[in-house]
């Protein structure tokens, strides 16, 4: 089966989630061609990386709206590439961009779509996937049986592995396309910490943080661990943290190796967003908090004492 992958490139680098998707594609292509459409500006470095992970073809464009990651422009590029390489399956990383491009392709091609999948395998001419619903309270096994199928894959659901191939690059012109939307500006925030959905470790603070000024203790621990910083809905609704930090059913769903919940009671909607983490640690002064019934390790104590100690102890033992 020929597979088209939409791979995201930002500041010249291919996102890790896209390399994970490429790895999945190799597992199921059964000798079919693996082509990549570059969502972002072309870079020779990105092309080399994609070849190292098994891409046989790399389609790119110099269209300004694709470099600005306009979802409509990336969709138009992917649509052309899918036709050119006769893709039976289109795979994307389940980022906001990936999921939107997938939805547009599905509508355009009349092809069934499953977004945010954690497993994929082939079945006959179609695919069978597993995807969380109800923010992970339920896992659905779904069969897609279209002439073309579209799947986006959640970051961190597999490990990217190299498998060098000879990649052929081809420039695609989008000059004939008239876009209905325009990304007027794109500001890439300086990355202080890893992105929540892609981080190996997440340190989150909830209502027990008592105020926005206290998150420095969480940030210090996160920086010690190279972790992302998250927050519960209570902390976001109180205005202490931006919504982009929220973990839970109306925020982000994360699945890191280690999730450290500080001052978080453990509401159902929060666990929906992080319940599939490999290891969960809770720090809370309330011994009766539900989080202690759903964690691997817990410390009953004042987070303002425990978290700085944890940061300090990790510094000591590493030096």
């Amino acid at each position: 089966m020929n597979i088209l992958i939409v791979a995201e490139v930002s500041q010249g680098k291919v996102k890790r989630a896209s390399l994970e998707v490429l790895t999945r594609a190799r597992e199921i292509s059964a000798g079919g061609e693996i082509a990549v459409a570059l969502a972002g500006a072309y870079s020779a470095d990105a092309e080399k990386t994609l070849a190292r992970f098994g891409a046989g073809k790399v389609f790119y464009t110099d269209h300004d709206q694709v470099s600005r990651q306009n979802p409509e422009a990336v969709f138009e590029l992917a649509k052309m590439c899918a036709a050119e390489c006769k893709a039976g399956l289109i795979l994307l990383g389940a980022s906001f961009l990936g999921k939107e491009v997938a939805a547009r392709l599905s509508a355009q091609l009349g092809a069934p779509l499953a977004n945010d999948c954690i497993e994929i395998k082939t079945a006959g001419n179609g695919v069978v996937v597993q995807r969380p619903m109800y923010a992970g309270k339920v896992i659905a096994t779904v069969q897609l049986g279209g002439a073309q199928n579209i799947v986006s894959i959640r970051p961190n659901s597999c490990v990217a592995k190299e498998s060098p191939a000879e990649a052929q690059a081809k420039k695609i012109s989008l000059d004939s396309v008239s876009l209905k939307t325009s990304v007027e500006s794109l500001e890439i925030a300086p990355l202080k910490r890893p992105e929540l959905t892609e981080a190996d470790i997440v340190v989150s603070g909830g209502r027990g943080m008592k105020g926005p000024e206290n998150y420095n203790v969480i940030e210090a621990l996160a920086d010690k661990l190279g972790a992302a910083v998250g927050a519960s809905r209570a902390a976001v609704d109180a205005g202490w943290r931006p919504h982009s930090d929220q973990v839970g059913q109306t925020g982000k769903v994360v699945s890191p190796k280690l999730y450290i919940a500080c001052g978080i009671s453990g509401a159902v909607q929060h666990f929906a967003g992080m319940g599939s983490s490999k290891c969960i640690v809770a720090i809370n002064k309330d011994a009766e908090a539900p989080v202690f019934k759903k964690c691997d390790y817990g410390i009953v104590g004042d987070l303002f004492q425990i978290v700085p100690l944890l940061t300090q102890e990790l510094s000591n033992s590493r030096d």
């Binding site: 339920v138 759903k294 964690c295 691997d296 390790y297 410390i299 009953v300 104590g301 004042d302 425990i306």
Partner: peptide
Amino acid sequence: EVPVYQRKKRVIQA
């Protein structure tokens, strides 16, 4: 399916 995650629930007093 409703996923079931086995947790160790080892809670330490500070």
